[in-house]
Write a protein that binds this DNA or RNA. Structure first.
Length: 150
DNA sequence: GCCAACGTTGGC
DNA sequence: GCCAACGTTGGC
């Protein structure tokens, strides 16, 4: 059992959307490190901190969980998608994703608040220059965040 | 909209 | 394999 923080633009998919939709493919990741986390390390049932980014109040907005094993991101094959990748083929797909299921909405733990909390200082997402859309979360960090959200 | 910090691409 | 140029992320 691992833990993750996954960023989503709420104008695109918010925590409310994720809960309403249920298990949904986490499409559009086009960064190899983030892809590798999904492809190589995620397991069904892993805990996800659902983070709202590029919005008025960025921060953790809810809890989700990994809901599938990895499989190819369909949008890489779709010429009409903005995520289309001409170098990807069905025989040799480049982008792999998992389904993510929204579990519950929480109060917003804002980025500014997170930065003030010593128990969260080690989180990858808070490190200077970090812009990975998927980052690993330690069990300690997970516990600390859940406590703050309760 | 700005821009710092990264990541990717492609010529050599 | 280096690295300059370019593209992207995402907070502010």
């Amino acid at each position: 059992m691992k833990y993750w923080l996954m960023k989503s633009e709420p104008d695109d998919v918010s925590i409310d959307d994720a809960i309403r939709i249920g298990a949904a493919p986490w499409f559009g990741v086009r960064n190899y490190q983030a892809r590798n986390f999904m492809r190589d390390q995620m397991q069904v049932g892993d805990g996800v901190l659902f983070y709202h980014s590029s919005c008025a109040e960025p921060g953790i907005a809810g809890i989700a969980e990994v809901a599938s094993t990895p499989y190819p991101d369909e949008t890489q094959f779709d010429e009409k998608s903005k995520y289309f990748d001409p170098k990807a083929t069905r025989e040799n797909p480049r982008w792999i994703l998992v389904d993510v299921k929204g579990v519950r909405k929480t109060k917003l733990l804002s980025l500014t608040e997170m930065r003030t909390l010593p128990q969260l200082a080690s989180m990858v997402v808070l490190q200077k220059g970090s812009r990975l859309s998927i980052t690993p979360v330690t069990a300690e960090e997970w516990k600390a965040v859940l406590k703050l959200l309760s």
